[in-house]
Structures are given as C-alpha cells and as structure tokens.
Design a protein around this nucleic acid. Sequence first.
DNA 1: CTGAAAGCGCTTACAG
DNA 2: CTGAAAGCGCTTACAG
Lengths: 341, 341
Amino acid sequence: MRKSLPTLRDVALRAGVSIGTASHVLNGKGIVSDARRDLVLRAATDIGYRANRVARSLRQRRTHVVGFCAPMISSAYFSAFTEAVHEHSAVFEHHVMQVLSGGDPVQEFERVESLLSRQVDGIILMPSAQPAATLDLIAQSHVPAVIVDRILADERFDIVLLDHEAAMRDVIAHLVGLGHERILFIVRHPDLVTTRVRIATLLAADGIKPEILATTNEHNDLPAALSERLSGRDAVTAIITSNSINTLWTLRTLRGLGIGIPDDVSIVAFDEPAWGELVEPPLTVVRQPTGAIAGSAWRLLMERIAAAASPRSHIMLRNELIVRGSTSEPRRSRQARRSVR
Amino acid sequence: MRKSLPTLRDVALRAGVSIGTASHVLNGKGIVSDARRDLVLRAATDIGYRANRVARSLRQRRTHVVGFCAPMISSAYFSAFTEAVHEHSAVFEHHVMQVLSGGDPVQEFERVESLLSRQVDGIILMPSAQPAATLDLIAQSHVPAVIVDRILADERFDIVLLDHEAAMRDVIAHLVGLGHERILFIVRHPDLVTTRVRIATLLAADGIKPEILATTNEHNDLPAALSERLSGRDAVTAIITSNSINTLWTLRTLRGLGIGIPDDVSIVAFDEPAWGELVEPPLTVVRQPTGAIAGSAWRLLMERIAAAASPRSHIMLRNELIVRGSTSEPRRSRQARRSVR
DNA sequence: CTGAAAGCGCTTACAG
DNA sequence: CTGAAAGCGCTTACAG
C-alpha cells in the first residue's frame, strides 16, 4: 500500500492552527494574521504538502477539468488542433481529459458520458458524423460545451466553425480562374456535414462540371477510379482532396499512374499537411487556422462556464487558400493557346 | 447555477433502500436480493443517475486516471505515440490527463506536479532533456510511473526504451554497405540522451568519418552549413536526420541548393513521417514502433499499480530500418566502378 | 442480506 | 481574525 500523503490536517496540526485557517492561508482567501500565515506556510513546505485536487473538486463541485473528445490525433489537422487545445489549457488554468471517439458515434457517446461522470466543468467536442445522441446527452447534462466544426448550427451550444462554403468558393474561383472546368473532389467521409457543405458548394458553382469520388479506408479503389477519371476526352483537369491522408494517397496513386502534377492534373488539398511545401511540386492548400479555432473554443467555454445563461455564440473562422505549384492552367488551355500562336 | 445532478442518495430514496445497498447494486459488489436489486436499477434509470467518479475517487483513493506528459504532439512520432496512448487507455479502463512540457524542464516539473495533485494513479512520461528534478519529484511521490525513451536507466522506474544504439548501427551498416564513408548526422537536440547515444554509436563506428551538425529551431543556418559540407573533396555523401522536422528542413534545403537525392547525397531519416513514402525519392527511414511502445508502457504501469514492490522492468524495443530510394551508392564509387569497366 | 455510520480531504458559512 | 462543524457524493467495514 502506498504511504499516504500529508493532508491539510497534518499541516494544521504542525502549525498549531485549525484546518480552516490552514485552508485559508494556502488558498489566499479570508484574512489571517501574519504570524499564523507564516506558521502554516512553513508547516506546509516542511512536510511537503500538496493539496488534493480531488477533494477540493468534490467539495467545490468544480473540477477545473475540461473534457476534450476528438475522432483522432494522428493526422495533420487533428494533431495541430489537439496540441493547440493543450497549449491553451495552461493559460486558462484547467486540465484536459481527452478521449478519442475514432469517429464512431457509439464510442463518442460512451466516452463523453465517462467524461461527464468525471464531473468535467466543460466539454470541447469535435463531433463524429452522427453526433445527435452525444449532443443530446451533453445538452441534457447542462455541462457547458463548445462544438468545434462538423456541425452547422445548434442553438443549444456554442460553436466554432470554419467557413467551408467560403473556402470551397475560394478553391473554385482559383481553379476556374486558371481555366479548369472538370473538377474531381475526392472525399473520405461524405456523411460529414463539413464535407456535405463543400460538396454542395461545388455542385452549385457556375461554369464547372464537378464530380465527386468517395474513397474507402484502404484507398485500394483509387488507382482504378483515378485512371478512369483522368482519361478520355472528359478527363478531369483538377482534383480537390478533402484531407491530408486522402491527399497523400492521391499523390501516391497519381505517381503510380505516371500522371504529372500540375501538367496532367492540378491539385488543391484541404488541410495543410506539414509536408505540403515539401513535395514536388509544392501543394496548393486550404489552411485551417487550428490555433485560432482552439483559442476561440477555450474562450467561449470559459465564458459559458462563468455565465451559463448568456446567449450562445457561433463563431465562423475563415480558411486561407495558399497557392503553390500544384495548380496551373489545364493542359488543353495551354495547348490551345500555344496553337493559336 | 447549474441544476444539481441526481446522487446515490436520490436513487436509494426512490428505491426505498439504504445508500449502501444502492451502492452495492450499482457496483455489482456484495450480495443483494433480486427484489431490491431491481428496485435500485429501476430507480437509477428512472432518474438518470450517473455515478460521480470524483467522489468515488476520493473515497477509494484511486482515480483510475493516468497522467501523461510529453514534450509535444504535433510531430510524427509524438502524435502517433499520443494516439496510441489514448487508444490503450480504454482497454485498461483508465482516463488520461495529458499535459505538455514543451521540452522545458521547468514546465515539465510544474505540470507533472499538477498531475500529482490530481491524484493520478500513475504517470507515463516522455521526459525533457533535463528531467532530473521531475524524476525526483515522481520518485518521491511514490506514484507509479513509466518513463518512455530518452533516458537510459533509472532503477526507480519502469522504462520503455528504444534500442538507439542498435538502430544507429543498422543505419551505419546500411550506409557502409553501400560504400559511404563521410556521413553527416543532423541533430536538433544534442542534449537528449537519445541523441547522445546515437552520436556516440556513430562516432565509435569503424571505417567511417562521421560529422555532427546541430541545427537551430529556425533552421536558417542549414543552407550555409549544408552547402559547405556538401562541397569540396571531403564532401559528405550521406546524411542522417534525427527527426521528422529536421528531415523536412533538410530536404527543403537540399532542393533549394539543387542537390539531388540520392545522386548527390543519400538520406536516412530517424522517425517515420507520414510523407516518408511520398516524397521523391521515397525515404529510407528508421521506423519507431509507437504502438508497441505505448502498449508496453501501459502494461508496465498497470502491473506497477497492482504490485508496487515488484522489481522494475526495463523494456527495450527494436526499431526497424526501412530501405527505400533515398539511399544508394555514393557518386564517387559509382563513377569509379564505371571507369573500371 | 441490509442499514447506520464513519470517513476520503477538502471548503465554507457560521459563531464567537 | 479564528475554530468547530457541516457537507461535497461516494465506499466500506461493521453490526445485526
């Protein structure tokens, strides 16, 4: 059995004061005479006292712990966002208890529930594709929560979201400006609201002929699908990929097929992978402002914890289109122009 | 003020039993008659009871929370390892409270201390470069801990480490086998024990002329340093990079200098970045078995929590060298061989 | 089998 | 200013 740690009682005993007084001193609350203050402080350091935050949490009904649930960690957007969430936690003097949903609504529900049983003061959730049950659970628990992206609107929560419509419009404008018409959008999770918005925006755009391709987890369908879409007179001239992993597989597949970028096809990638600037050619990407997202989420959550009744905020953040070498005029326009000369 | 949640007392009241009996039923402990069991179960679901894990933790002096401290999240090795740590947490029925040290010994100490005040049952630590104070703190707290890598031996802790010496020997053997002699090792944190082992192994190897280059955070010294090391008759023919970010900068710099891989210089990268297979040429890398590391850490920690007195374990895991296109014979041997014909 | 009671380590009104 | 006491929501011997 582990030797039990010194408690506030031990401090009080050694300092010859009451537990209440010791508590006041250590928390800088109430008014205590200098003499006793010194006594308590000395006693605490002498015996190496460290407050038990579990006891304090129980008593105060406030844990200073924020629950954080995300689908995963190990891809560009998620790891950058996760790091930003943890970096902000220190600023706001909270700990974070993180759980992974794996994108599975059932696990999401269970793990958020486990967070609730831990009495977290608030929740930051990056939802799965079907978050309805989890959102109901959170709403009904009355625990302050902010939902990050992947959901459009919900009056019950503060929401930080990216303006996916604007981002997609930027991408389209860029490609159309270069002369592209047949554009292939490769998505991984067509169910995600995020993806649906992007798809809808693409389909609604004027002057282009968009196609959508949903990939599987193993991406083994990609070579066949891409070689088909990239051949013939209706071949697509530009590809938009929906996330880093998708981008990686697409590039690999294109290389395998011997298709050149941007000569044979242009590429725009959502997310900004760390290697985006490294590949040849460097990638045109849609950058996600992960630091700003995390900061906004924390700020909203802290405000909500402080004032449960204030009106909900929906913050919309703008992505940034970074144009690099992976996009250029389509081959046909280049040839056409050349033949004109 | 948030509406207070139903407690065990509410369940007991509604079921018409004592709190102790309700507790027994809900925890599946003790022997309770079927009639009362049903009563309690029904009452609990009726009022939507959810156990308060903070209260339980205080009473049991066991939180089922593991503290996890790492320098960062957003680079390949760390994000893969972090994800693996979280994935295992569910299996072992613990939550994880994660803090970031940023590689700074002072922050590391403070945040591990805050973990201790949260009464974590155990700690998984990826140490900073000067972890002595933190290690003392943990040892003195008697909280079970397992140290992951970056430390060679410490009888006070269970340790999971990678066999960096063997890994470096594999790299050297590979390069020497190809005919390389002048090898440059680009490191970012020369203080890290990990790095020191790698450097020592490199310097001790027979038949090569190794050089070490320590980069700064901004890597703005890299172009000058590399162009110097890669020119002249003593030019290095192979480069080993110490982590993903370093690798990224090195590749970018080489491209900027117009130096070809592997024609002008071969590259071996420690860590296995997600994009390792994607760049041209695909990278020869030393793969870190992140899943196995996390699994071993959890297993050791759980065993230590169960049996504090059992002897400490030091587990050593083997890296894997993945040979791809970024390494080949050095130019000079190729030219020499050609001229022989 | 069941209930009454102590206690985990704190904070916080409440008297004095 | 200070101390005695209640209580946060549980678990767990201990009687019966």
